[in-house]
Amino acid sequence: MNPLRRFNLRDQPLPTITTTTGPTIPGWTFPLVQTLTATTLLTTTAPTTWHTHPLFLTILATLTALVLLRPTPATAGLLLTATGALLWTTGTAPLDPRILWLAPLAHTLWRATWWAAHVPPTARTEITALLTGWRRTAAAIGTTELLALAAWAVTTLPGLEAAILLGALALAALAVLTLPREP
């Protein structure tokens, strides 16, 4: 007989500890959201002709599996960079209007990866916990959308290069600000 089976006493699952919390969602929701957002980001930014290409499908599966199995900020960043690369190859220059919904989707993937990294699939997460800081997220996404709209407006006007440079400088300043500083 299988020795593992002999000592497997858990014919029925063990009882749970009752905790009284608000409405919750299970932890496996986050990998699901990750899968959906990752495939959406990669397939929509890739050319439609690639969708059946075995190489693309392999890359798609690898990246999605990577972000699922190792849900770290680094893998999420890698996936976003890959999305950016695809967007560069397929998007309409100088600014693809799909960025208006791709940017919020990228943020969703980023947060879902964070949650998946911290919450095991069997855990429960309070819905109010998910919604904490929604104002901050809304403000960030709103700012991005405004920037995108402004950039879109600017790209249709003459003097494009100067505007791009200006925007790039502003974003560089933002990136420098986010750099960790020693206290």
Partner: peptide, 11 residues
């Protein structure tokens, strides 16, 4: 010269 790439990481 593609500002949309930068916007992807903005949020």
């Amino acid at each position: 010269g593609r500002p949309d790439l930068a916007l992807l990481a903005a949020p």
